[in-house]
Amino acid sequence: MKPTGEQANIGAPVELDSIERDLKKLWADGNGALTRASLINLAVYSEEPGSLAGNTQLISRIMENHACRVLVIETNPLAASDHAQAWINAHCHVRAGAKQICSEQLSFKLDGTKLLTSVLFSHLDSDLPLYLWWQAELRSPLDPQLWTWVDRLIFDSREWPDFTSQLQLVYAAQREAAPREMVLCDLNWTRVLHFRYAFAQFFDDPVSRRCLHEIEQLTVVCGDGYRSTALLFVGWIAAQLEWNVVGETAPLAFLNQSRRRVEVRISEEGSAPLASLRARTRDVEFNVRRAECGDLLEVAGAATGVQSEHQLLPGGDCDLASLVSEELMRGGVRVVYRRAVEKIQRFLR
């Protein structure tokens, strides 16, 4: 069962109807020295040709911290006939001292879209939740059978060609899943997570909290092509502070609860999704910016014009594997996300 050629890192090719049997053999080859672990089914769906290898690399990193059964699927939706090929593999990591913890990966190359649901359903680890990482464009009509099984839908709204239509399809999928609560995990939202923590902590103190309602100006610097990320961040503040959008077009501005105007400036430079944030009241300035080392944030709050001592907070990594890992650590429904999106949706078109 030696993998060869192009498929070397996705494992050994197997017949579809013998996957479970070959998986057993794979584990038996470990002579009992390996511990198989799985807490979730993670399905990764892509329509990008050659994505199996790239996704396998991502999965290997994700599995360092998350034991799961992974089903990596590459589909050619334009194929004339329906056909499936499969591979199996195991990712092992040393954890908890010297234990080899292993999780299995099943890879599928599908011609046509008809086989997706059946292939997926046939190979889920029973009783474990299904997280579906959808890397392609969502298209109507949606397969209701699929969505009723999905517990979390992971996607990256930054990649969407048309935010509004894709979001509507996501909401439609969520309705298909009802009454089960399908949690929406937008990786573009995850990109702003550490900035949210860093900004929120300024206002844990009751004295500083008063400043929340005195913010007059927000300045966000984001990376080239990350305007949607910056908008989600601004949408979050606006939604949580109950600001209302002024006008339909740029420049973006809000009216706060006291109907005072809050100016928002977003500029794009560099490569970090979010580089810095400044919130100003008349007297105080709150700053969060990504430190030079990349994975830390420098935070400082002080009276305007006064040099203040900064502190460091975790900034997280913004590569896809880290973002997905972050999502897998978190639970709960995403009410705040929906609220933030609603606030700035018209600017994300």
Partner: peptide
């Protein structure tokens, strides 16, 4: 004093204060 509205969804525990 109301709770910090920006903490909603970020943390499920009481937030420690600087001390």
């Amino acid at each position: 004093m109301m709770a910090n509205p920006l903490r909603e969804g970020l943390t499920t525990r009481a937030v420690p204060q600087p001390c």
